[in-house]
C-alpha cells in the first residue's frame, strides 16, 4: 500500500491531462444519454407533466400519491417475488453449471451450448415459452396430460410470476454461469492441488476453496443480475402484459403504463426515481456486505 501511494503522487497532474481524451468519448455518451435524462427525470418526478403542456412543479405530491397507491405496493411485491425466484434459482443453477464446466470439461463446444439460450432474443424466448406452456394448446401440458396428470395453468394469477421468472432463469443461467466460470478460472490450480493432497472431497473443496475465493466475482454477478432483474419488462410485456388482474404488473411495466398509457410522465418519473434509489441502496449494500472490492486471493 505504502509503495503505491509514493508512486502515484508525482504522476497525478499529468495523468489527468492524458486521461481527458480517453475519457471524453465515454463522458459525452454518459452526459447525453444518462446524466441529462437522469437529472431531468428527477426534476420531472416533482412535476405534473403530460408531455403536451409544460411541466408544473408540484413538490412531493407524486411521491405522497405513490406511497398511497395500492398498485405501487403491488408492483413492489410482484417485482420482489420475481427477483427472489429469478435470482435465487438462477444463481444456484449457474454456480452448479459453472463448477461442472470448470471441473469436468475443457470443451469449447459445451461452453458454447451453455450460452445458447442467451443468444436468442428475449421476445422470441418469451413467445415460444408462452406457446409451449399454454393450457389448451401447449406442448408441455400435452405431455402432462399424456402422463395422466392433470393439466397445469402456468399463467394464472398465482403462477404467472413464477413461470416468467423461471423462463428468464432458463435464458440467463448459461450466461451467468460463464461469468462465474471466468471467476473460477482465476483461482490458482495449486490451491486445488493442495486441497486434494489434504484429502478434501468435491463438496469440501467447493465449500472451503471455491466459494470463498469466488466471493468478489459472485458479488459482482449478483449486483449485475439483481439490478437487471428488478428492471424486468420484455418477458412480461410479451406474455401476460401485467395480468391476470395485476399479478405481473412489475415496476417497469407499470411505469410504462403510467407514462405512455396515461400520459402521466411526472408520476411515472417519480416511480422511476424510487426504483433508482432502491436499486442503488441494494447494490451498495451488496457491495459492502460481500466485500466485493477485496479478494482473499492476495498472498
Amino acid at each position: 500500500m505504502a509503495k503505491q501511494a509514493v508512486a502515484r503522487k508525482p504522476a497525478r497532474r499529468s495523468d489527468f491531462l492524458t486521461a481527458i481524451p480517453f475519457v471524453l468519448p465515454a463522458l459525452i455518451g454518459l452526459t447525453i444519454f444518462v446524466l441529462i435524462p437522469g437529472i431531468r427525470g428527477v426534476y420531472l418526478a416533482f412535476t405534473s407533466y403530460d408531455v403536451f403542456t409544460d411541466p408544473i412543479f408540484i413538490g412531493i405530491d407524486n411521491f405522497v400519491k405513490m406511497f398511497q397507491d395500492e398498485l405501487f405496493w403491488n408492483a413492489l411485491a410482484v417485482t420482489s417475488e420475481y427477483v427472489a425466484i429469478n435470482i435465487g434459482i438462477q444463481t444456484v443453477v449457474s454456480l452448479f453449471i459453472a463448477v461442472l464446466l470448470h471441473r469436468f470439461t475443457r470443451s469449447t463446444l459445451i461452453r458454447g451450448i451453455v450460452l445458447m439460450p442467451y443468444l436468442i432474443s428475449n421476445v422470441i424466448v418469451a413467445l415460444v415459452w408462452y406457446w409451449l406452456l399454454d393450457y389448451n394448446l401447449g406442448l408441455v401440458n400435452s405431455v402432462i396430460d399424456f402422463l395422466g396428470l392433470s393439466k397445469f395453468t402456468f399463467f394464472s394469477d398465482m403462477t404467472a410470476m413464477p413461470t416468467i421468472a423461471l423462463i428468464n432463469v432458463w435464458r440467463h443461467m448459461g450466461y451467468t454461469a460463464l461469468l462465474i466460470f471466468a471467476g473460477l478460472q482465476a483461482i490458482p490450480e495449486d490451491v486445488y492441488a493442495a486441497a486434494s493432497v489434504d484429502g478434501a472431497g468435491e463438496w469440501r473443496t467447493f465449500r472451503s476453496i471455491t466459494l470463498p475465493l469466488l466471493r468478489p466475482v459472485l458479488a459482482f454477478v449478483l449486483v449485475i443480475t439483481i439490478t437487471g432483474s428488478f428492471q424486468i419488462f420484455d418477458t412480461v410485456a410479451v406474455t401476460t402484459g401485467g395480468g391476470p388482474i395485476n399479478a405481473t404488473r412489475v415496476f417497469s411495466l407499470w411505469i410504462a403504463d403510467k407514462a405512455w398509457g396515461d400520459f402521466n410522465f411526472g408520476y411515472a418519473s417519480a416511480i422511476s426515481v424510487f426504483l433508482m434509489v432502491l436499486l442503488s441502496i441494494i447494490a451498495f449494500a451488496q457491495t459492502k456486505l460481500l466485500r466485493a472490492s477485496e479478494s482473499d486471493l492476495e498472498r
Binding site: 408462452y130 406457446w131 393450457y135 389448451n136 395453468t153 394464472s156 404467472a160
Partner: peptide, 10 residues
C-alpha cells in the same frame, strides 16, 4: 368455457 386462468395464453 375455459377458466380465466386457463384462457390466459394463446
Amino acid at each position: 368455457m375455459p377458466t380465466f386462468a386457463q384462457q390466459n395464453g394463446v
